[in-house]
Amino acid sequence: MLKTVIAGALMAAGLAAAGEPVLVTGAGATFPFPLYSRWFADYDKVRPDVRFNYQSIGSGGGIQQITAGTVDFGASDAPLTDEQLGRIPDVVHVPTVLGAVVLTYNAPMPSLRLTPEIVAGIYLGRIARWDDAAIAAANPGVALPAEDIAVVHRSDGSGTTNIFTNYLSKVSPEWKEKVGFATSVRWPTGLGGKGNEGVTGLVKQTPGAIGYVELAYAKQNGLPMAALRNHDGRFVAPTIASTSEAAAGVEMPADYRVSITDARGPGAYPIASFTYLLVHRDARDPVRGEAMIRFLWWAIHQGQAAAAPLDYAPLPRAVVERVERTLRALTVQGRPVSLAPAR
């Protein structure tokens, strides 16, 4: 390992003008930004000659920037659509970590279990009260308040909304037909809060409210979270482990463009998603291109240890092995980069 690092450092030092750091620029998703900035700081100890400049302007902005060719890498919470990929066919998705979306609520229940039908019913406006028969059936022995449900969603376009509506589209044909999924949708009911903090604010101060936020945000703020019935029919609480497990039970296409909501697996939490870095299959700039590939290699191995403490779910072993093959296939001006075998 050390040898590779030294060799890599020497090579980069030889390529770059002496003492001149390599500056790799990227832009995109805000959701993984805390982890990425941690990675950039940690990687600075491994390769002090490589600097990263990452602008967390949102997934949409990241896709635009890499399409326009103004950045070395983009970042997106959702895989590119066929239309987007058609404009930049040489871009490769590299999954980095996983995130989950949880349902938080403001009602005096110590715990709450929800089925896909209930979640879709609430967000379609069909289930309007907490003491609805469907909720009672899923929560035997829990005293449900005789209160109206106040539905809260994100008002700003976000990857979180994309994942959540993608889940609803999978579990509810009615949702799929009426609303669909995207970073912003036309909500059948409810109020919009800006960002995770806006949704949380509304949920906290509106009695009977329910809203969806990122797992990391909910954990850090100690919010109550509902357990969801997954594809295998088991109620699963949102945790780092159950999020990672959602990625393990999915048949992965070669380009990783897969939705892992409503995934199979007894312990899989159903509203989970990869977040991706977008890089060119063949880098144009030899120095920055190689630095980026080596960083990605580091990120899917050593970098994964930093994920859980920041409440992101690390990639399962099987996915890491696949990403290794993907990274080995990346080239810099037509030449592959020699990467150390996994430990």
């Binding site: 302007i57 949102g58 997934s59 949409g60 902005g61 896709i63 635009q64 659509t81 987007q84 008002s155 700003d156 376009g157 976000s158 990857g159 970073t183 912003s184 036309r186 909500w187 409810g190 109020l191 919009g192 809060g193 800006k194």
Partner: peptide, 30 residues
């Protein structure tokens, strides 16, 4: 304001405004 793109006569209802929707949706519009 509640950020609901609807038109209501009642001032109690949730609505939306021009600058708010631009700021909300621009960053993630693809």
């Amino acid at each position: 304001i509640g950020n609901a793109p609807e038109i209501h006569a009642s001032l109690f209802a949730a609505g939306y405004s021009l600058p708010a929707v631009i700021a909300n949706e621009f960053a993630e519009a693809t």
